[in-house]
Simulated scan of single mutants.
Amino acid sequence: MLSTMITAAAGACLAAPVAGLLVHRAVVRADRARRLRITGRHGIDERYFTRIGGLDQWISVRGEDRAHPVVVELHGGPGSSHSVLTHLSRDWERHVTLVRWDMRGTGKTLRRSGADGQGEMTFARLLADAAEVVEHVRERLGVRRVVLLGCSFGSALALRLARSRPDLVGAYVGTDQKIFDGGRDRADHDAVLDRLERAGKKKELAAVRAMGPDPRAWSAEQFGHFHRAAATTDPHTFAAMKSVVMKSLWYSPLHSLREIPVFFRSFLVSSAVLPGTAAFDDRADGTRFDVPFFVVQGACDLVNTPARARAFFDEVQAPVKEFTLIEDAGHFAAYRRPDLFLDVLRTRVLPTLGGDRQEA
């Protein structure tokens, strides 16, 4: 979903003399590696592959205290590994144990087995993998339930898992919340057409018009074209792609130079999932959740708009629910303002867990 906007941002970040870039990269990576160290005797810092859905998949587990609540994050894209964002969530790890997973078709999981070794690339397969990851985390860390954090495309997976498996989920948190409506609402399509017209991008405008407003008829390539148009005409999101994602990828101490092309390849491999989601309807699937329900959205997000997320949220029935806007942020709001997201996590989400770790 975000592959083309990331590619567009890449040139802007890497257009500098190569030698100088590499020297500066080495210095920054060393500093970030130092800041990421977890040295306390109660801490945990594990990165490993485990068998999920018949495939070796990569998982990271980090936190200052194993006794803290466990947050399992489902990244966006599909194909947008959040392991590159580890330095931005460093303060979160002082309050929770944060589990990241490179889904099949993504990042280190993709590099391990190659594009031809990823198996079935469907939403249903990713959802089954997500449930298996949570089961694995519960057993490995000795917890009964986890806080499930869904980001953008990952929020579509997390939403379904929280609805269907409250036995696994202590609380749901969606950010850059994705809501499917069965292709009925053409507001996003019309908004992109309007922004393209105002920007004078005639070629892109003609292409989006030719696709039509119904995503159920789009190919994977057309999904990519639409999301590129949506992102490049959204100044907040495009700025976040450069300052948050691309810089994080380039300076990540967890990723070698050889892994950078894999980051981009992940979107191409994972795009096969998108056409199968076009007919999804979150309201038809149900708005009742048996777990605390939180949405944290960028007020200026034009990719997954706060209005669409709020409209769904208003219909949700849950034991506790809360909707938070992060002002002056678009997509990637939680990573644009990780301090504000942490405040929501600490003051709103974690108290609903009852003050304990929900031991198995």
Rank of each mutant, 00 (worst) to 15 (best):
L302F: 13
V303D: 02
V303L: 13
V303R: 01
V303N: 07
N304F: 15
T305E: 01
P306V: 07
P306A: 08
P306D: 12
R308Y: 04
R308E: 05
R308K: 15
A309D: 07
A309V: 04
R310Q: 12
A311T: 03
F312V: 12
D314A: 06
D314E: 15
V316L: 09
Q317M: 11
A318W: 07
P319D: 11
P319G: 11
V320A: 09
V320S: 06
V320F: 12
V320R: 07
K321Q: 01
K321T: 09
K321H: 08
K321S: 04
E322H: 06
E322A: 11
F323H: 02
F323A: 01
F323Q: 06
T324H: 15
T324D: 04
T324N: 11
T324Y: 12
L325W: 12
I326R: 01
I326H: 02
I326P: 02
E327P: 01
D328R: 15
D328A: 13
D328E: 15
D328T: 13
D328K: 13
D328Y: 14
A329L: 02
A329T: 11
A329H: 02
H331C: 01
A333Y: 02
A333G: 13
A333N: 00
A334V: 08
A334W: 01
Y335A: 04
Y335G: 05
R336W: 10
R336I: 08
R337C: 02
P338D: 12
P338H: 15
D339C: 11
L340Y: 03
L340I: 04
L340N: 00
F341Y: 08
F341I: 04
L342A: 09
L342Y: 04
D343K: 14
V344P: 02
L345I: 06
L345H: 00
R346N: 09
T347H: 15
R348L: 03
R348E: 05
V349C: 03
V349M: 06
L350H: 08
P351N: 06
